[in-house]
Amino acid sequence: MRASTTSMAGVVAVAGVASLLLAACGSSNSSSTVAASSGSGSAAAASCNGKKIAFVMGAESDPFFQAMKVGATDETAKQGAELIWQGDPKEYSPATQIPVVDQVLAQKPDGLVLIPTDPDALQPEVVKAVAAGVVVANVDTHVTDQSQVLTFITGDNADGGAKAADAIATGIGYKDGTKYKVVVGLTSETATTNVARLEGFKAAVAAKYPGIEIVDVAYSQSKPEVANTNVNNWLTKYPDLNGIFAIDGTNGQGAAAALQAKGLTGKVALVGYDAYPDNVKLIKTGVFTALIAQDPATEARQAVDALCTKLSGADTSGIQKAVVIPNVVLDKNTTDADLTKYTYVA
């Protein structure tokens, strides 16, 4: 009896340590991969008939990639190609992405659209793909050496940050000579999109709005309730807070809830990022001063189009090496048609 109790305790203790280790690695349990869909279109005027186009994205769970999938599905169907859409369910990391790319390459696609989760770690995968005769395009992020990549199509996060600064300034009625306090809610210190948006935001504030002081930043670890706690405490700490830049959808949700609960809707300017459907609705009610929307569907369409042009042997001189798709500012002046167009699918 005693022995078995001890061994049980041992198991539990080991389990506890293991769970802490799991947490330390920041890894989720879902390291497996899921094939999301594969459909083949049958458009008559297709230039890509019978070709296989593979898409390997960052993290399936992100609405950004869901919106991208819509563009990819549309365009491959239109071009008559078969789409292989894959990526890790949750984790945005090279460790989980590299095996997925290998698996996709084993299916011998004709073209590969890769959203590299790390510019260097994914470089060998691009080399491998090109050696196997696969045409490669990058979307959103790119590998370090672009020489073997047909085209790189991206939204501009720094530009998005700068547009957020403009939107905040408009929202608070910025006047030179007046001091304003603004905070920024981020997801993590290291997420590259966060870093680029924050840099763009800071640069625009420094250049155009010297009266705005960024008094604090905090991290939500992708959890809206943590973002909510951060904003609640900021509102206590800075009773005269003028504006919040919520750098992604999660921070937007947490901040929107905090402002509504404290009755500060419209009193504190809130600029969010990403056009989640339920956040877009909050523009109308004045909770969000503005949302910065990206256009992932267009990014995907252009990438597929470029690959198909190349694969069909047509003239490729029209394909640019790098294409930047600008961000869009959605606010109360945006038309309903545009709001619908830029809202991510969910």
């Binding site: 959890k223 809206p224 309730e225 909510n228 999660t250 949700q253 947490g254 809830a257 609960a261 339920d278």
Partner: peptide, 12 residues
């Protein structure tokens, strides 16, 4: 608290 459900709530 959030006026909505979020899939990442409670994560970790």
């Amino acid at each position: 608290r959030l006026g909505g459900g979020a899939p990442t709530s409670g994560y970790g």
